[in-house]
Nucleic acid binder design. Structure first.
Lengths: 260, 260
DNA sequence: AATATAGCTTGATATAAATCAAGTACAACC
DNA sequence: GGTTGTACTTGATTTATATCAAGCTATATT
């Protein structure tokens, strides 16, 4: 159950200065004054690179680090004893992963890299200390939590009350717009398409469906000319129709994104 | 769409002193030092009473107040345009309702009283100011958010990956234990039973099912002697079997409850 | 006491999604 | 260049849950 830290690769020196970090504007330390960034820098471990499918942490572990995702895609999920996997949230660069207030208790979910990822690791012990010292950090974390909860609610509405087709449409739009909102950090982002590393099984596990059913449903969406998912790329072909089908509200998903 | 404030009834003077408040140990202001409670008291509006089925706020409104639930049960839900209702969370005394970080945007969910409720109302404008002034408050809010997210994840796992029977069992156990954890504040709490105001339709809307199917499924649970729901009372008759069926983990639900 | 109403039950039927089972395309590896 | 394995597709069938419809309690209302 213990994490094998051989999975981690220390990243060579460049772009490890918090003060110059291009992701910081999206991340937890956005609000920290420059002169306080020494704190951040001091408690931060090196940046780590993780290969696709590798786990950042696993449910049941006591949390040792929290992470700012620097690049790549992460799936956060829970598993039930009978094997089902439920992805409750995908993380994108800038997102803060693995933090829970009571660090004494084991964490209740897992996080897995979907692409090669880079993360900045912060020991939770230090982090909790800094949270007490720098109030602007706490308020920043509140903003981010507030946004997380909002996404969580929307996702739950999807899973609980929408058809397979609607769920799929909703997820495509959510991810498309989240990626576009931070477009300059995501390689391969175009006007109406994005790089898209999710397998149909990932989609199924995020939507409470089976991969077989996702395949069929995706085919319908494709045949109707609404989207295209090929070669790890998602293209939105008819956004109005898709938005209407999914009952998607762009404002809710990105209105209070940290960046904006 | 605007709230009709005639719905609210100002509660007569007793028990409105924050310093003596029996709910405070569970609520946002738990961590506030006694000498700082004047802030709390100052920004707090009167306590309000709301009748069952009345709404505290509705999705689409700009949030004007956030509330500490003082007594009673509240359902927090979203509706999709085609009429479906999804209850994402039930609130109990001590819970903090209706807060979102960016107060400039409309709120994306509604809150409705399931019983007669009493709330303490805090204007979000003032609240944001106090959050900046009193760091202990921010950290407290982080704890509460962290717990909310945890419950949300668990609920999502239920809705996305469990059978109707398991979902129902899980929800019964979650609510049973949450109520018991604050038992002294909940009238009618016994060793193995609690007052339980939810209708089968409420259950259905929380679980992503129809009320017809809840009726049938509940019957199965009853026939198997696992629970009994009668006269607005929930009795857990066979907790081990129920826990096993639901794959319920009591620790996750209440381990980092504010009280503990 | 009579009546209305909301919540629950139960049966018959329909449907969305799961499951089981083969087969295909395609990238990764030797 | 062939082989292996993973992801995806497609068809046939089953199952869980939804839908439609009618009747049944309780509780509240007059």
């Amino acid at each position: 159950m213990a994490i094998n830290y051989d999975n981690f690769i220390v990243k060579p020196g460049e772009s490890t200065q918090c003060a110059q970090c291009v992701v910081r504007k999206l991340a937890l330390f956005q609000g920290v004054k420059l002169e306080n960034l020494e704190w951040t820098q001091a408690i931060r471990q090196e940046q780590f690179i993780l290969k696709p499918k590798r786990r950042l942490f696993e449910e049941g572990e006591p949390p040792r680090y929290a992470y700012t995702l620097f690049s790549g895609w992460v799936a956060q999920y829970q598993t039930s004893p009978d094997g089902g996997r439920m992805i409750h949230q995908f993380a994108l660069p800038g997102d803060f992963i693995g933090f829970q207030a009571k660090s004494g208790h084991p964490i209740d979910y897992s996080a897995q890299a979907l692409t090669e990822i880079t993360v900045c690791a912060f020991p939770v012990k230090e982090l909790n200390k800094v949270l007490k010292e720098l109030p602007e950090l706490s308020n920043r974390l509140i903003d981010m939590h507030s946004h997380t909860i909002k996404l969580c609610r929307q996702h739950m509405l999807s899973v609980g009350r929408k058809s397979a087709k609607q769920r799929l449409a909703y997820l495509f739009l959510e991810l498309f717009h989240r990626v576009k909102a931070i477009g300059d950090l995501m390689p391969g982002t175009e006007e109406d398409s994005i790089a898209f590393p999710l397998s149909q099984e990932d989609l199924a596990d995020a939507l409470g469906l089976t991969s077989v059913h996702v395949s069929r449903t995706l085919r319908e969406l494709t045949d109707e000319g609404l989207v295209s998912v090929r070669h790890r790329r998602l293209t939105i072909l008819n956004e109005p129709a898709l938005t209407d089908l999914a009952q998607f509200d762009k404002a809710i998903v990105i209105q209070d994104h940290p960046l904006l």
